[in-house]
Write a protein that binds this DNA or RNA. Sequence first.
DNA 1: GAACAATCGGGTAATTAGGGAG
DNA 2: GCTGTCCTAATTACCCGATTGT
Lengths: 65, 65
Amino acid sequence: METERLLTPGEVALMFRVDPKTVTRWASAGRIGSIRTPGGHRRFRESEVSALLADLTIPASQSTA
Amino acid sequence: METERLLTPGEVALMFRVDPKTVTRWASAGRIGSIRTPGGHRRFRESEVSALLADLTIPASQSTA
DNA sequence: GAACAATCGGGTAATTAGGGAG
DNA sequence: GCTGTCCTAATTACCCGATTGT
């Protein structure tokens, strides 16, 4: 089995440079998949977060011509 | 975990001494790389911004010779 | 059981996005 | 062509006290 690395809201917040509450809001809005602990805290799949971050990343168009 | 430092439009605007709107236009024009949050807000790589800022900073030719 | 940091939930200000006219 | 300002709507950030995780 492959051990999927899980990230906390704080970790994801650091990656996107947003508030942990914002990450929670994304999960509530269904913009990102989340896993809840028995206590109600959210965890996020590292692969999904990385993919989302990469997908939303727009490189600069080099126009040094 | 290696986390790339990201900057908000407002922070970049302060660095360049321009309006945040102008920074947004640079991103739209592809003149600077950008990362969008799932909510649509932009974030910028600190390293890229610094490099661009340094590139625009033309040091007065040292005429010490 | 106790302590600490982080996350939970809800509510309110600040920032940002997008279009338009100067 | 580029930038700063005005507008409205959406998103995000910080406030609180209570619960969860380590």
